[in-house]
Amino acid sequence: MASNYRILAVCGAGLATSTHVAKTLQSGLEKKGVSCQIRTCSVAESSGVIFQYKPQVILATVSVNSIEDPHGAKVYSGVPLLTGIGSQKLFDDVVAYLETLED
């Protein structure tokens, strides 16, 4: 897993829930030996950012449906990274997903 993956965290903007979620995921993945880039944006910006940045994984702290077109990225709820409940499972799920991308 040497690849540098791209993760995008999307929030409603204002409180930077996405920044918190993105940083938590990044450090969680690093502990598992997976390096990734993180980027954050608001829902309003998300279409443009997804198109340009081409993330493999999107973490949302807003309704998943409000992300119009993830362009093939897998979308997860970022809530476990806020509450801590289920965060280990989320790290595992994301790592398992990223592993499927390697060929």
């Binding site: 930077a16 829930t17 920044t19 918190h20 801590g84």
Partner: peptide, 10 residues
């Protein structure tokens, strides 16, 4: 700085 505040609240 919003991120730290959120972290603190959580």
């Amino acid at each position: 700085k919003q991120t730290n505040v959120l972290q603190h609240v959580m």
